Amino acid sequence: MTSLVTLFVSSPDTRSERRFDLQLSISRLKEKLELITGIPVRNQQLAIYNDDADSQPAKVLDDDQRPLGFYSPADFQVVDTNPSTTFTGQLTDLSGVDKFELSDEQYALRQDSVLAYKQRHKVGRFAEKVESTPAPAITVDIPIGSRCQVESTEPGLNKRGTVRYVGETNFGSAGGVWVGIEYDEPMGKNDGSVQGKRYFTCAPNFGVFMRPDKVRVGDFPVEDPFEDDENEM
């Protein structure tokens, strides 16, 4: 019958799974735990917990002469009773650390602080405020009622129509002036209204809105779709 038991050992800075002999005395056990946890034997207080969630120990191993098996161990924790003298305890015990504190007024007077750096280099809330100037109004010389032709990416295709609207619209995130056109043929996208607002009136799919730089105004008569057929007869 084996006399070894596997236990979870936890301390302020460590947690590990270890195997111990049940015949091992508590004093000898503490010597082994010093190598594992870094807590000196004289500072160790051992307590057995049945579960990690338990807040109160099931047993305290307070008799150094007793064997480990006397306490029927499950998992146990090593408590450091004097962390100020333990190397590992010094990493987590801040009770002896002097705190450097400054008032807001003292901090504002320092020249080696982040605040002073931001002030010198005008960063963040110290950046110079740039007043935005409104964009100049764009004048568009496209008379309503004039004939026009719209650029097309398809070779040989001319989109001609009549200018029905020139001005601002409620659509388009960039804003600016749009030109509303009634096409001669149903090559458009709307009937002169967009998103519920009417800018002009035409038949469905004859209306379109274009940027002024895409529209050419001039003598663009209505094209006869059967003109080429007549020339070939």
Rank of each mutant, 00 (worst) to 15 (best):
D13C: 14
D13H: 08
T14E: 07
T14V: 15
T14F: 08
T14G: 00
T14P: 00
R15P: 01
S16P: 04
S16K: 03
S16R: 07
S16L: 09
E17S: 05
R18Y: 05
R18A: 06
R18I: 04
R18H: 10
R18G: 00
R19T: 13
R19M: 08
F20N: 00
F20W: 02
F20R: 00
D21V: 15
D21R: 14
D21P: 12
L22M: 09
L22W: 03
L22C: 09
L22G: 02
Q23V: 13
Q23N: 15
Q23F: 14
L24S: 04
L24F: 00
S25Q: 08
S25V: 06
I26A: 00
R28Q: 14
R28S: 12
R28W: 06
R28I: 03
L29Q: 01
L29F: 10
L29A: 07
K30A: 02
K30N: 12
E31A: 10
E31Q: 15
E31G: 15
K32W: 04
K32N: 12
L33S: 03
E34R: 11
E34A: 05
E34I: 02
E34L: 05
L35C: 10
L35Q: 13
L35Y: 11
I36K: 08
I36N: 07
I36C: 09
I36P: 00
T37A: 08
T37Q: 07
G38D: 07
G38E: 05
I39V: 12
I39W: 06
I39A: 05
I39K: 07
P40H: 07
P40K: 09
P40M: 05
V41R: 13
V41E: 08
V41G: 05
V41C: 14
V41F: 13
R42I: 14
R42E: 15
N43K: 07
N43C: 14
